[in-house]
Design a protein around this nucleic acid. Structure first.
Lengths: 213, 213, 213, 213
DNA sequence: AATGAATGAGCCTTCATTCAT
DNA sequence: TATGAATGAAGGCTCATTCAT
């Protein structure tokens, strides 16, 4: 039951794709195994059951995501709160773009109540919140950020960061914006920067520095 | 097959609740009929099938939502683009709060690919986009709004407006913000106003008017 | 879900036959439904699941069996302990013969450990033991029975009564005795009577009465 | 494929235990291999398949059992029919007690119809019947036994001998008799002796000898 | 001698739906 | 209008078994 079997990987790939397209509950293990080109009993073999496969998809995505933030936090003292937050946002967008299958599915499936999800996700999001709050408070203390309410800010930031994921169909088919394209991400990043500039940067400093219009 | 049978209504209530809790695919027709206290054959009788019930839930929510915008658009010439947009945002938040069962489920289910959804939803969202764009362009033309890209703005606005819905669990269990409480909605509205002020209001006018910090 | 649907009855008949032939675990719900000529979902519909069907077969057999003993006990004061026990044995053999499908399966399946069986069966057997012990003790007190140990006697009696069931194949294919035939039952009943005469009847009374050689 | 591999033995032990607890069909190959602490492919390797393992368990038990009777028959001319039968019964009870895992399972599984069982078992039981009949007929001819019908007697004897096995749960949980304890076996042996005395010993001889009350 | 990977068949159950009443 | 009976399809999962190593 090696961690790097080809069968195992093909199952994960198929699952990510189908979960993201149809959602977890609308995807059958037979769907997954058919797409992976393997026998469906392998899902039970490698992940115990369908939920185990879900759990693996969730945690492996979230592990990487948290590591990204964690590693980034180390730059807080070098880059300062503003630089740190700015580059963090950039990297999160990039990360979501390169992992958009998992990302969309995690955020989508997340809305629904499942004890499984809740237990797993709470842990991750609590850590994420802690990291973000740390950056914010450092900024407020140093006078570079306004005195924002961290939860309120985090919720809005999350809304902005995940909008291209959660409204992907809408974005593409109604707005003709294609979140997967590099061009879009660059533009969208600028928008979030601008939001950030006006919303949490301390205006006096901003004006003093003559930054960002 | 009257439109106002008690049986019919109890089915809708049960469906909305369960769809929003577990999602469409994880909810069985028996779940719904059990919660509604009626025989499951009634679902076929009133809505043809499970998809018909879904369709009804989607469209009745979206109908009301679109009407809200539509009616609002009529105030465009009286209140002006800024006032119109401002009060529209307020009403959308209020509408989502009082219809949060349907709202959360519509946006959640929306992420997934289903020919049904696609057909139904595209029509609505296209109209919504048209209305919002109308307001925006009126504002830009009148000089009260900056020259923003409507799609980009709409996507961000959507992200902000739906964040309390789509990240409801996260909001409550990690951030301790409770989107259903009136207090929250009021505070969140202010945040969006502030975002709007900085993000699309023409800065010269803003400064001239000495408005909003 | 009426208690007397034809579908329901055909399922029970098929189940009893197959359980007794192949045993519970070797019988699939498809086997049962195929033999009953109904859709396999009906098993779930009428008995919740395969275990529920088993449980029904067990309890309905045991209910009838216990009632038989219970009704019989009422003759204790009329027929006296000896007559009562004698006719009880006769009726049990007759009952087992006319319900041999259920009987063989209940005693056979009983050997195996299943929390289900244990819970259900214990209650019944405890009652059975109580009834038998009542008869025995009445006989001992009245001097008509020897001072036998009730458990020991009951175990042997059980062994004798169930032998034609539990060793049915052996009986038929090796010994050429056919427990289902009336002739066999009559002969076997005599054998048990004889065992009873020598084994628990008080010898002094027996000799005095000049009974049974 | 040596006959005495440790792996092989651990499989047999695990199988005997699980077959006796859950029955053959309720026991999976994985259950067995897990309990034996070996890879489940070993079962194929050593016994061809699950049925082969069953077959081995049956035959190795029955071989030993038949040998026991066979060896015993040699004492017929020394000990005489009564002594021979008496000590045979004693040894069968002892044998069943020390092999109760296999014994209970063999008799339990025996009830069910399986071409496998039938083929295997018939041979053994036929031999057993032959041996027992030989003893009986020797006794009848010598005047020490009454003219009993061998099949009838064998069936009853079998019922009595296997009662503690086949009604093991019942015996322990309802009657509080524990067949595995030495004390029980001794007491039970006496009971069977008494049955034998009254049931097949020629009464004149018995009275003349003044034996056994 | 023994294993882990992989399979196809089959398991029990639940599903959405139909239909006579 | 509303129901209970019944169904065929599909669900997730476990099974005994094979095979290369």
């Amino acid at each position: 039951m090696s961690r790097n079997s080809e069968t195992r990987n093909s199952i994960i790939d198929a699952a990510l794709y189908l979960f993201h397209i149809k959602g977890f509950h609308a995807t059958s293990v037979r769907d997954i195994s058919a797409r992976a080109g393997v026998n469906s009993a392998n899902i039970s073999y490698y992940f115990k059951n369908k939920n185990g496969l879900l759990e693996h998809c969730l945690t492996s995505f979230l592990d990487e995501y948290l590591q990204l933030i964690e590693h980034h936090l180390e730059t807080l003292f070098i880059a300062g709160p503003e630089g740190c937050l700015r580059s963090l946002i950039k990297e999160i967008l990039a990360f979501q773009r390169s992992n958009h299958l998992a990302a969309r599915f995690v955020y989508g499936e997340l809305s629904f109540d499942s004890s499984l999800n809740r237990e797993i996700l709470s842990t991750y999001w609590t850590k994420e919140k802690y990291y973000l709050t740390t950056i914010l408070e450092a900024g407020v203390e140093g006078g570079v950020f306004r005195k924002v309410s961290p939860p309120m800010f985090i919720l809005q930031l999350k809304g902005l960061l995940t909008a291209p994921l959660l409204h992907a169909h809408y974005s593409m088919e109604v707005l003709y914006q294609f979140p997967q394209e590099e061009f879009f991400t660059a533009k969208y990043l600028d928008e979030i920067y601008e939001y950030m500039d006006h919303h949490i940067l301390n205006p006096y400093i901003r004006i003093a520095a003559g930054m960002h219009g």
